[in-house]
Every structure is written in structure tokens, then in C-alpha cells.
Design a protein around this nucleic acid. Sequence first.
DNA 1: CAACATTGTTTGTTATAAAGAACGATAAGT
DNA 2: ACTTATCGTTCTTTATAACAAACAATGTTG
Lengths: 136, 136
Amino acid sequence: MIGERIKSLREKKGYSITKLADLAGVSKSYLSYIERNMQNNPSLKVMAKIAAPLDSNIEYLLGEEHLPKIYEDEILDDEWRSIIKKAVDEGMSKGDFQALKDLVRSNMWKESLQDAAVSSNEKKKTSNIIILHIDN
Amino acid sequence: MIGERIKSLREKKGYSITKLADLAGVSKSYLSYIERNMQNNPSLKVMAKIAAPLDSNIEYLLGEEHLPKIYEDEILDDEWRSIIKKAVDEGMSKGDFQALKDLVRSNMWKESLQDAAVSSNEKKKTSNIIILHIDN
DNA sequence: CAACATTGTTTGTTATAAAGAACGATAAGT
DNA sequence: ACTTATCGTTCTTTATAACAAACAATGTTG
């Protein structure tokens, strides 16, 4: 919930509600309400004002709740967007994707992956797929 | 400004104000106000309701104005966008991406990353990955 | 050219976001 | 014990977000 995030960041900075409200330019009573989720529908301006002195931003304060992941884009069509969205929802990080993409582009990865697959099967059973063949 | 973004996305979808307001569950009068920037401080709930049927999100609707510094491990959407776009330009197909997604989920590629990354050069070709799924 | 639907707008009202206190609790100082 | 300060909370008030309905303007069909 949004209140917890604000409170967490606030305490991490060592601010009191009064202090943060002062820095942000909102009333401390209202800030108190928001932190306790008694007001879960603040305006954009208030959110922005609160986020600033926390060195944060609205998106983070919103947390996962309101975050559909993919931007509207003319190049990435609907199918792409849903594919990526699903992947992100399943836990793919940008770092993972970048690294893996680069790995695929290289030509040395085939053997090492197969080796890794075998060895990882031996010790840890967490993986349930294995690379059989790469065709390029 | 926020109004232009909404209007642009709405028209791209071929929705009228009435239609979008209906889909979003907000009053058309209010939506009209927002689009014309006569109301520049809507609440988070209204923003989320509007963003949903546009297949968009609050961050995008906010535009560059409030925009984000990176916060720890949070997902940066327009970063994702450019990453994917680049990958597509480099020849990645949707099928490739799906395969990559499965790879990421398996987690096993990470061990082999260091080995492969050292000798990662050469060859620009579209890759086709064949993956055999094994349950264990 | 009617009658009607659909567009986006403007008008009034209501609901509620946000402020501005005043409040009890805790702590430090005199 | 009596201040004085700061903490977070709860009252009361007012500003405005958001609605519903009526509106003019344009479009469509018989």
C-alpha cells in the first residue's frame, strides 16, 4: 500500500511527519492520513510534493498496484506489449534480459549453456528446461 | 501536459470522450476538463481508471514532467521500451523473446554467463532458439 | 428537412480532498 | 510541579475534485 512506502522512505531519511509535511508543503494531518491509508486517493500534486523531499517519485510510491508495465508505442505493437508485460509480470528484469540477449548474440554460448544445463540438472533441480539446439 | 497525452492516446484508439469515460468509469464532463487541462490535479484513482482502457499507465500520462530517477530495483518502463526496441532492431523475433523469457525463468543461464561473456564477439544474425522442455 | 444520434462542452450540485486548527502523549529543561 | 517543544493523532472547516444533467454543434438516417 502507498502509505507504507511513504512511511518507510520517510523514516529512512529520519524525518518526522511534521518535518516531511513541512518540506513537502502539505499539511501534516493529511500526510498522517495518507501514511495510515485512511486517505488512499490523493491528487497528483500532493503525491509529487511528497515524493520530492524523499528523493523519490510517484511511480515508486504507487508501488506495483497501479503499474501496467508497458508504454504505448508506435513500434511495439499490441502483441509485443502483451508478451513483454507477461514476461515482466513473471519476474524478468531488465538486467536479465540484457545479459541474456547479449549472450544469445555471441557465438560461444551454445556449448557453455549445454554444459551448464547438465551440471545444473545434476546438482540443483530447480530448472525444468534444457537447451537442445540452437540454429543460426 | 497531461491532457494532450490522454487525448492523443484516446484518439489513437478511436475512442470518443464519451466512450472512454464510459470504459474508464469516470464522468465524461470531468474527462473533458482533464483533456483541456482545466483540471490539472486529478486523483490517483481517476488517473488509474483512465489509463487502464488506454492500455497505458499513470507514469506515461504524466509525461516527462514528474519523471523518475531510478529507484533501486524498480522497473523503469521507458527503459524497457528502448531495450526491446533495440533488440527488435537487431533482429529479435517474438518467438526468440518467448524463448528468452523461458530461459530467464529457468535461471540456469546465469552460471554460464561469465564464461560466455568473455568471448562474446562476432556474428550478426537472427537467432532461432529451440528449447526442449523437461519436467523434473 | 425532419427526427435522432453522437460529438464535446458548460452548468449546477454533491462528495471529498486537504487544510487548519486543537488535542493528548512523551520528553527535556528550568 | 510547571513550562516548552516535538511527536502523531483527531476534530472542524473550506476548497475543489468529480459527478449528473442540460446544452449547443455536428453528423447521420429515413
